[in-house]
């Protein structure tokens, strides 16, 4: 173990957290919008627009079928356009957000579809508009499932940041490749892996705790 270990790890961790936080936020926003649109626009949904449904479904499937590392390469010009560079954590956030959003859209779609159709009918029967149904019925009813879905996604994004690190995004992944692998610094390699494992555990634990506390409030027994 050498003196620079802690410094390197700390910088890497901060970069990773920075990327994970912003990517998750953007991916969640895009994924939520796509997921909700897919659910409500399908045939028999609360705002059926089958054509829009098909188009969005196609886009989601297309992006999801690309391996992430290839997606980053394809999105390099987009990153350059949006944040002005194709290197570093900021550029990675663009690719990470776009790459993770379709995946999130699908798990959010599944969570929303778990909401019993009867609850939506009941809301319709009192005269609720589609927007009211989305924001006051669908999302609140699916909230515990949505929190779990978000947890899965944030962990997936954490993994992706490590992959993005391989092509110059910075963060813990890049640290492990550049120092641990290319410069034979095994101490850095192991330390990085350890930090990533801890990070994922903390994310999962936080997600579980949040989902459980929502559920306990709703399903508490006297």
């Amino acid at each position: 173990m050498r003196d620079d270990l802690i410094d390197l790890l700390w910088t890497g961790l901060l970069e990773t957290l920075y990327m994970v936080f912003w990517s998750s936020l953007f991916a969640l926003a895009i994924g939520l919008a796509l997921g909700i649109t897919v659910v409500v626009t399908e045939r028999g949904g609360i705002l059926p627009i089958p054509i829009l449904n098909k188009v969005i479904g196609f886009i989601i499937n297309t992006v999801r079928s690309l391996p992430f590392i290839i997606l980053i390469v394809i999105l390099l010009p987009v990153s350059r356009f949006i944040v002005g560079t194709s290197l570093g954590p900021k550029a990675a956030i663009v690719a990470l957000s776009i790459g993770a959003a379709p995946f999130l859209a699908r798990i959010i779609e599944n969570s929303l579809k778990e909401v019993a159709g009867g609850k939506i009918e009941a809301a319709k029967s009192v005269g609720a508009s589609p927007v009211t149904i989305i924001f006051r019925v669908l999302i609140p009813e699916a909230l515990p499932a949505l929190v779990r879905a978000a947890t899965i996604a944030v962990i997936a994004i954490t993994e992706f940041t490590a992959v993005a690190g391989a092509i110059g995004a910075g963060g813990l992944g890049s640290l492990a490749i550049r120092f641990g692998y290319q410069r034979f610094r095994e101490d850095i390699l192991f330390a990085t892996v350890l930090v990533i494992i801890l990070l994922v555990q903390i994310i999962q634990w936080t997600g579980d705790l949040t989902a459980r506390s929502i559920q306990q409030r709703r399903f508490k027994r006297e």
Partner: peptide
């Protein structure tokens, strides 16, 4: 139609209450 529905209440076999409320 939504306004007319406010004047037609409905109850269901499975109750269909919102668990979040």
């Amino acid at each position: 139609l939504r306004q007319a529905r406010q004047k037609i209440g409905m109850i269901f076999q499975q109750f269909n209450l919102l668990d979040s409320r």
